[in-house]
């Protein structure tokens, strides 16, 4: 039991962070507004959760200009993908 709880990742306890990771592991990248629309959260809320995932080096941020408008794209890092996989595996084990 103990080891399962250790495998559960605190970073993914929050629904918004969990949602961001779920979206990014199946998409090459997503921009800020698409994430906001999918998750139905406010700018500030989303930004702070992404920031914390960034700090853990689970997501990469790329800022670019499309038609002279700034656009921020997010993608999951290899480290983030592994951590997320481990988290899901732990949930599945726990529910068994």
């Amino acid at each position: 039991m103990k080891s399962i709880i250790e495998d559960l990742n605190k970073a993914f306890e929050n629904k918004v962070r969990l949602g961001v990771m779920s979206i990014l592991v199946v998409n090459e990248f997503k921009d800020f507004n698409s994430l906001k629309e999918l998750l139905q959260v406010t700018d500030g809320n989303l930004a702070s959760h992404i920031k914390s995932l960034e700090k853990l080096e689970y997501v990469d941020v790329e800022k670019k200009f499309v038609d002279r408008k700034p656009r921020t794209e997010y993608r999951v890092t290899e480290q983030g993908r592994l951590a997320f996989k481990k988290h899901i595996a732990a949930i599945e084990k726990l529910l068994k």
Binding site: L18, G19, S22, I88, I91
Partner: peptide
């Protein structure tokens, strides 16, 4: 357990809806 069942639902729905 209930929380994690709920979490799995979120994961599945987000993967589906986003891709």
């Amino acid at each position: 357990k209930e929380k994690y069942i709920e979490d799995l639902k979120v994961i599945r729905s987000m993967m589906d809806r986003s891709g």
